[in-house]
Design a binder for these strands. Sequence first.
DNA 1: GTTAGCACTCATTTGTCTCGAGTGCTAATT
DNA 2: AATTAGCACTCGAGACAAATGAGTGCTAAC
Lengths: 342, 342
Amino acid sequence: MELDERKIKILKAIIQNYQETGEPVGSRTISKFTDLNLSSATIRNEMADLEEMGLIVQPHTSAGRIPTDQGYRLYVDQLMAEKDREVAETKEFMVQKVDRLEQLLRQIVRFLAANTNYATMISAPSVSKSKVKFLQLSRMAEDKLLATVVVEGNIVKNTILDLERPMTDEDILNLGFHLNNTLNGLTMAEINLELIHKLKEVAGPNADVVERVLEAVASAASMEGEVPIYTSGATNIFKYPELTTDDTASQIIGTLEEKHQLAELLTSSLKDEDKQGIQIYIGNENSVQAMKDCSVVTATYELKDGLQGTIGIVGPKRMDYDKVVTILKNVMAQLDTMFKKD
Amino acid sequence: MELDERKIKILKAIIQNYQETGEPVGSRTISKFTDLNLSSATIRNEMADLEEMGLIVQPHTSAGRIPTDQGYRLYVDQLMAEKDREVAETKEFMVQKVDRLEQLLRQIVRFLAANTNYATMISAPSVSKSKVKFLQLSRMAEDKLLATVVVEGNIVKNTILDLERPMTDEDILNLGFHLNNTLNGLTMAEINLELIHKLKEVAGPNADVVERVLEAVASAASMEGEVPIYTSGATNIFKYPELTTDDTASQIIGTLEEKHQLAELLTSSLKDEDKQGIQIYIGNENSVQAMKDCSVVTATYELKDGLQGTIGIVGPKRMDYDKVVTILKNVMAQLDTMFKKD
DNA sequence: GTTAGCACTCATTTGTCTCGAGTGCTAATT
DNA sequence: AATTAGCACTCGAGACAAATGAGTGCTAAC
C-alpha cells in the first residue's frame, strides 16, 4: 500500500480536525475541510486504506475515524510544520525581575500552562556535573558551625553542623580556607576518596568535621538525586473529555502531584540531542503507566555551566504538537539569551 | 423547640451514617442503626423537628435527610467525641531520618493524606517574628558578595550581590562584622528606618551595599510573604462523589496546586488558640470560594523559637471530623516531643 | 407518646423507539 | 481507471414512558 500525497493530506486533515473537536471525524467533514475537492465516497475509500495501514481507526462501526498512536507518530515525525507565526506573540513572557532560580522555573511552568492549556512540569537544573565555586566555614555559636557551599550556576546550599569538640576560630578559618582552596573548581565527580583522605590528614583531629562538611557538600550539591520538579496547570486536563473518564484524570493528577515518577520521565530525556533536545512521547511511549492515554513533549534546556534540566508538557494524544513544539523552542531561545549575557 | 437527648442521638446517627455512605439517610435506617428501639415513624417525627431547627435537610421530597452546615457546626462544637483508640495505631509515623525541614513537612502531609483519605496541606513555619541569629558577608569573586543570614529556627538564606564598585577585603570584613553586631538578636520588626539610617552612615560610601544587604535580609527572612506550602493527596477528593461534580473537583485541585490561596486560609488560623490550635471550617466558613463545598480542619503547630505553621485537611463536609482531629492532635504531640528535645 | 398503615412523591432505573451520522459496497459516470 | 452517486446497514445518543422503590407526612389506633 502506497502512502501517496493525497492520503497524507487526508491524514493531516483528520488529525487536525480531531485535534480541535475531539470527536471522530467522518468522510463528509474531510470532503469539505480540505481543498482536494473530492466527494465523501472517495475519501471513504482512502480512509479505508489509511485504516488498513494502521494510521487511523474507528472507535466503533458507523463512527468517524480517529488517529492511532502510529498515525500520530507519523505525523510528528514527518508531517508536522511548525507554526512560526506564534513566535511573535510569545515573546517576552517575563517582566518580573527574577531573583531566584526557583521563581524563574515557576514562572516558566505557569506561563506554559496558561498558554498551552496542557499540564506542564519542569525539572530544576541538575548540578551533579557542576563545579564547586566557593566554600566557607563560619562559627555561628559556641558549638555550631555553618558550612556554605556555592556551586556553578550560583546555587547556594547551607548546612549547620554541631561541633563535637571545640575548635578555635583560627582552626575554623584555616580549615575553611584549606577546603575552599582544595575543592574549588572541582566537580562532585572529582572529589574522590583519595582527595578526601588527604583532606582528613591535613585536618588532623578535626577529620570528623571534614567528613561532615564533605557529606554536606555532596548531599547539598547533588541534592541527593532529588531534583526538584515544579508543575502547573494540572487541572487543564479536565478540558479534554477523553482524559476525564473515571479515574484516569485522578491518576494523571496524582502523578503530577507526587512528582517522583516525573523525575524518571524528565531525566530520561536529558541525553537525546537529536531534535534540539525536544522529544515527543505518544501514548504508551512514555514510561509512566498512569499517562498511557497522554502524550508528553519534553525539551531539555541548558543554562550556562552545563546545568541542564527538562521541561515537560502533558496533554491528550490529540495535543497540538506543532504549537507545543514552537512554544517550547521559543522558551528555550529566551532562556538561552537570558543566561548567555549573565 | 427543645433539643433533647433523643434528638441529639438521632442527629448524631444521621451524621455518622451519612459520613460513611454519602447517601441521604432515611428514617428506617436510623430506626435500626441506633439503640433507641424506636420505629421509623417516630424517627420521622423527630426528623421533621430537626429539619425545622435547620440541622438537617432533604435534598428533595421523598429522599432521606442530610446534615446542614449548621448541623455539622453543632456536631463539631458539642457532640463530637474523639476516638482515642486510633491513637495507638498512628504512633511513630516517621522512621526515616529527617535531615531537612522541608522533608519533614513533606512526610507529614504524605502521612496525613494516606491516613485520612482527604487532601492535606502544610505551611512551613513562618519566620517573620524570628530573630536574626547570624549574618555574614564574604567575597565570592572580584565583584561578587555573598550575604548569608541565619534566623532562629536555623533557617538559612543566601543572597548574591553584584558590587557596583570595588571593596577591600577589610571593608567587607568590617561591614559584615558591624552588621552582624547591630542586627543580631533583632526581629524583622525591630529593624526600622532609624536603625537603617544609622547603619548607612557608618558604612559611608558603601551605603548602597548596606541597603541591598538589608533588602536581602528582609526579603529572605520574611520570604516576601511567600510561605512555602506543601500539599498531598489532592486526588483523594475523587473519592467523594459530591465533590466530583463537573468542575468543583477541578477548582479544588487547582486551588491546592496554586497554593497562594491556601496561604490566607492557613495563616488566618494562626492566631486563634482556643481549642489547642485546631479549627474547623464547614462549607462557606472558609475563605476560599472554590472550597465552599468542603470542610477544612486546620491545626497550628509550633516548633521551638516560636516558629509556627499550620496543617490543613480538606475533605467533603461529611468528613470524619473526630478522626481528623484525633490524628492531628497526635501529629502535633509527636512534633512537640520531637522538637522539645532537639 | 408511640406505632402501624396508607397514600403520595419523586429520583432512578429500565426498556423501547427514533434519529442521524457515518460506513461499505455496488453501479453508474467521467 | 478513477470518481461519484446512491442505498442499505450499523450503532451510539437522546427522548420518552413505565416500573421500581426508598422515603415521606399524616391519621388513626395502641
